[in-house]
């Protein structure tokens, strides 16, 4: 379903240094697969996600989703992004809109659904993430965990084929991580294709099909969560796991 072929991505810092975010990066993700990406900061995890819906331009290589090279000049990237939901570390809810309007806006603007239709879908999803009673409040009145659940509902409202989570629980207070992970676990069990950047190894163990350990823009090691808990091979993997577990 998703195919990364020899992707290179380099960032230039303001002081003109080059930072290699992805180096000859290749991987495949199948439909229905839940992939967890782990790795130290600056290892290219977020870049990997952001290339997957072209929030970043790549230097070379190909990223093919359902047979379409999304970096092709003729591709309508907006059409592709409709199918890929993204959840951000800092939620990025629209602060000038109520919870309900956050979830209906893109449905109406992008999917051209009517107000009634989009509201109905939004209510279903807000119910699903357990926050329907807050539909008329603004984000400033929500806790971090609640905001992130709204953000998940907002992404799901587009009925995406793939969901990406970019450190979705990293900015949350510890007692709120669980409520967000529960929503993500439910999604995974429903068969959603998910690419999840996280350090929550409990989540990885419970629902992931594959864990990918990245460092310096490359995949160092990949396998099941169990593999990472019991016998990681590479020294870098062991060192990293000893720091987060």
């Amino acid at each position: 379903m998703i195919d990364f072929r020899h992707v290179y991505k380099t960032f230039r810092t303001p002081d003109r240094r080059e930072v290699k975010a992805l180096v000859d990066f290749s991987t495949q993700i199948n439909k229905g697969e839940v992939v967890v990406i782990i790795g130290p900061s600056g290892s290219g995890k977020s870049t990997f996600l952001r290339c997957l819906n072209r929030l970043e331009e790549i230097d070379s290589g190909e990223i093919i989703i359902d047979g379409v090279n999304i970096y092709d000049k003729d591709v309508n990237i907006n059409k592709i992004r409709e199918e890929i939901g993204m959840v951000f570390q800092l939620f990025n809810l629209f602060p000038h809109k109520t919870v309900l309007d956050n979830v209906t806006l893109a449905q109406q603007v992008v999917r051209k659904r009517t107000k009634e239709e989009s509201t109905e879908i939004a209510r279903q999803l807000l119910h699903k993430v357990g926050i329907l009673e807050k539909e008329n409040v603004y984000q400033s009145q929500l806790s971090g965990g609640q905001q992130q659940r709204v953000a998940i509902a907002r992404a799901l409202a587009m009925r995406p084929k793939i969901m990406m989570f970019d450190e979705a629980t990293s900015a949350l207070d510890p007692e709120m991580i669980g409520e967000v992970l529960d929503v993500m676990k439910t999604l995974a069990r429903e068969g959603m294709t998910m690419v999840v950047v996280t350090h929550e190894m409990g989540f990885a163990r419970e629902v992931s099909d594959r864990v990918v350990f990245m460092d310096e823009g490359q995949i160092v090691e990949e396998g099941t969560a169990e593999h990472f808990f019991t016998n990681p091979i590479h020294e870098r993997t062991k060192l990293f796991l000893s720091q987060i577990l």
Binding site: L55, R81, E82, I84, V110, R111, A151, A155
Partner: peptide
Amino acid sequence: IHKGQMEASRSLGMT
């Protein structure tokens, strides 16, 4: 306006 607002909008498929 935080650039995350634009990214969130674009990731939802908005132009």
